[in-house]
């Protein structure tokens, strides 16, 4: 009984939550430093794409993982340049980067594989089995420790909560924000990579399908705290799993519920949960503001 619960629900929930958890923790670090990160979606997308491409050509998922992280890092640093150096509006710039990221995979896949936005299938032996799961556990624990017990965590929190206090104690707010942005790129890129080379066996067009935004919702629901954010991700992961399991299931009458209705589920629950939780949450005070 316990074993079937584990293999049917717990393990699959952890699996589908993995990309969300990586991306959400990245988003949490970025937003804690005071920078709004709505670009998680785009970062995940390019992370997934480059991970699939590199895994395909090297036949090593580890190189794929590294490629996904680097691609995410590049995109986030570009975002950082616009908002920290050029002082662009964070929402507008983040949206632009999301749109930009959507165009990258179709463009490159046409050049490299003569396809309109997907990569060739990677053979099963070159894909991850369960390594990302352990990696995720390590990142979660590291994030929690980093957040609560290290100087880095303390200072990044102040960069988002009271940048002037941080600055007046002699520490560069902008430096912390660059670090937060870089972490979001690395982690969301990693999350994207697990989409294509862990949960699937190739990159398919618009593969992230809103997961970046759901990860951002998890950050808000988790009140910008690491373990709470992870818990929120698990909730969203569970609804996604339920969505997959409910497809084709006959609930009443003799017809299956139309698959479109089932697929709405994760998004619907995101909206509902956020609407209900929104009143209780409190964003870092300096979020989206200047230094």
């Amino acid at each position: 009984m316990l074993e079937t619960l584990f293999s049917n629900w717990i393990l699959p929930t952890l699996r589908v939550s993995t990309p969300l958890i990586f991306a959400a923790l990245g988003g949490m670090w970025c937003e804690r430093s005071g920078v709004i990160q709505i670009g998680l979606e785009g970062i995940m997308l390019v992370g997934a794409f480059f991970a699939a491409v590199v895994t395909h050509s090297t036949q090593s998922p580890w190189w794929g993982l590294v490629a996904g992280m680097l691609a995410g890092l590049m995109l986030s640093l570009g975002y950082g340049f616009t908002v920290l150096k050029l002082k662009a509006n964070q929402i507008v710039s983040g949206t632009a980067f999301n749109l930009f990221a959507m165009g990258i995979p179709p463009f490159l896949s046409m050049i490299w594989f003569d396809s309109t936005g997907s990569t060739p299938v990677i053979p099963g032996e070159s894909l991850f089995r369960s390594a990302p799961l352990f990696l995720m556990g390590a990142v979660v624990i590291a994030s929690a420790i980093l957040y609560h017990h290290t100087k880095f965590g303390l200072r990044i929190r102040f960069a988002g909560e009271h940048p002037k206090a941080l600055e007046s104690s002699g520490i560069s707010v902008r430096g912390k924000r660059w670090q937060g942005i870089a972490l979001s790129g690395l982690l969301a890129g990693l999350g994207g990579a697990t989409l294509s080379i862990y949960l699937a066996s190739s990159f398919s067009r618009n593969m992230s399908s809103g997961r970046g935004f759901i990860a951002l919702a998890a950050v808000i629901l988790g009140r910008w705290l690491p373990l709470q954010t992870v818990t929120a991700c698990l909730l969203f992961g569970l609804t996604e799993l339920a969505q997959i399991r409910l497809q084709g299931v006959v609930l009443w009458g003799d017809q299956a519920v139309p698959v479109q209705w089932i697929q709405i589920l994760p998004y619907l629950i995101t909206i509902l949960v956020l609407a209900l939780a929104m009143g209780r949450t409190r964003a870092p005070k300096g979020l989206g503001g200047g230094e």
Binding site: H149, T150, F152, L154, F158, I171
Partner: peptide
Amino acid sequence: VHQHFMLAGPETVLDNIILGHEPGRVFV
């Protein structure tokens, strides 16, 4: 001591005081 305090409300008194001058190397 500025007229408008340089303190972050949700953070603890201790963290507010030692910010930037934490005694640890990696840990606080």
